[in-house]
């Protein structure tokens, strides 16, 4: 930080920082809007861009309206929700555990969700309560079951240590992964294919119902994390320092984990498990703008949404075969991540 000799200079510096932050957020929001508009024009069904706009303003043929309004639009909105949720969850986990390798799957939540979904796919579990929505319902429910188990394991009479929580998450995640493998092993051909496809992640079955299902928990989760951005800043610098600065670390940790579970639960419920987004997007923005969560949170929300829409559009339209989006997030995301890491000199955790 530059040296400031007077209060006015300091104010001017803060004002310029705020302006810069606002500009970065505005640019990312604009990129999100541009990506949304561009991806709305692209798909496996040929519709001229002017027809897409005609449909958006109430015109167009019934066939075009169906594709744009009933298939493409809800799918893109689901991508936005899931991309934002997973990126933000990754950011929260990395900051909470002060671990650059942390991601939404670190607490075993994704593995628990995969097990819940596998139960529904294999045995129709949850169908009596949720009917045709049993798979998203079970995935969502098992996110919270997993979170509860992890928290109970990590809890001691002295409280919950972050490292214990992390290790409990890894253990419980491994346990659920084992159960998913067992389900795959005993499943018949069709069921096995359904489980494997679900674990690869896809927006192919996302319709308006999916969007409505996921919107409430995800927006709630984002809000919870958003309102804890100041505490996250302090915790990521060290829990003791945060406590000294008046942060209720225990409560914040519970709220952040709850927010993350809502985000991950809502996401896996409609799209299956999609890896790497929660790792790559927060790091890219951390490398670009530094560690402030006030800036990182909106950037991860907008950037994650744009990233997911772009990747999903590539996955469905760029190849003769629709590739599950979870495969592409790793195949395209990892090299891009390495590129940013090598070209950006700024230390991501400074």
């Amino acid at each position: 930080m530059a040296e400031h000799n007077s209060l006015d200079e300091l104010r001017a510096y803060h004002f310029s920082r705020k302006k810069r932050s606002a500009a970065i957020i505005a640019i990312t929001a604009a990129a999100l809007f541009a990506t949304f508009t561009a991806t709305l024009m692209v798909g496996n069904y040929t519709i001229p861009w002017n027809e897409v706009f005609a449909v958006l303003f109430g015109g167009g043929s019934p066939a075009d309206r169906q594709i744009v309004m009933d298939i493409r639009l809800p799918r893109l909105l689901c991508c936005c929700l899931v991309g934002a949720a997973l990126s933000l969850s990754g950011l929260a986990m990395q900051s909470l555990f002060k671990n650059p390798m942390a991601s939404p799957s670190i607490l075993g939540i994704s593995s628990g969700a995969a097990f819940g979904a596998s139960l529904a796919i294999s045995f129709g579990a949850g169908a009596a309560v949720m009917g045709t929505y049993s798979v998203p319902f079970m995935a969502f429910a098992f996110c919270f079951v997993t979170m509860g188990i992890v928290y109970l394991i990590a809890r001691t009479k002295y409280g919950v240590a972050t490292v214990t929580l992390l290790l409990a998450g890894v253990a419980v995640g491994a346990f659920f992964n084992g159960l998913v493998s067992l389900m795959q092993y005993i499943a018949d051909e069709d069921t096995l294919a359904a489980i494997v496809y679900w674990t690869m992640g896809s927006f192919n079955k996302c319709v308006w119902d999916s969007f409505y299902l996921a919107a409430v928990p995800i927006l709630l989760g984002i809000a919870v994390i958003l309102f804890r951005s100041r505490e996250l800043n302090l915790i990521s610098a060290g829990e003791e320092q945060a406590a000294n600065m008046g942060v209720n670390v225990k409560r914040t940790r519970i709220l952040i984990i709850l927010g993350t579970s809502l985000c991950v639960g809502g996401s896996v419920a409609i799209s299956g498990t999609i890896g790497f987004v929660g790792l790559i997007v927060p790091h890219i923005f951390r490398m670009l703008v530094g560690p402030s969560h006030k800036l990182l949170i909106p950037l991860c929300v907008f950037g994650g949404a744009a990233f997911m829409m772009g990747i999903d559009t590539i996955s469905k339209a760029a190849f003769s075969v629709s590739v599950p989006v979870g495969i592409l997030t790793s195949l395209l995301g990892a090299p891009f991540f390495v590129y940013v890491m090598k070209t950006k000199k700024k230390e991501m955790w400074e």
């Binding site: 069904y45 066939a63 594709i67 298939i71 496809y197 469905k316 190849f319 003769s320 075969v321 629709s322």
Partner: peptide
């Protein structure tokens, strides 16, 4: 008109619509 998939559940809805159309 290749769906690029083997099951109806994985048939991309837009591609399905395009093929039918």
């Amino acid at each position: 008109l290749d769906a690029g998939q083997n099951t109806i559940g994985n048939y991309d809805l837009e591609k399905m619509g395009q093929h039918v159309k």
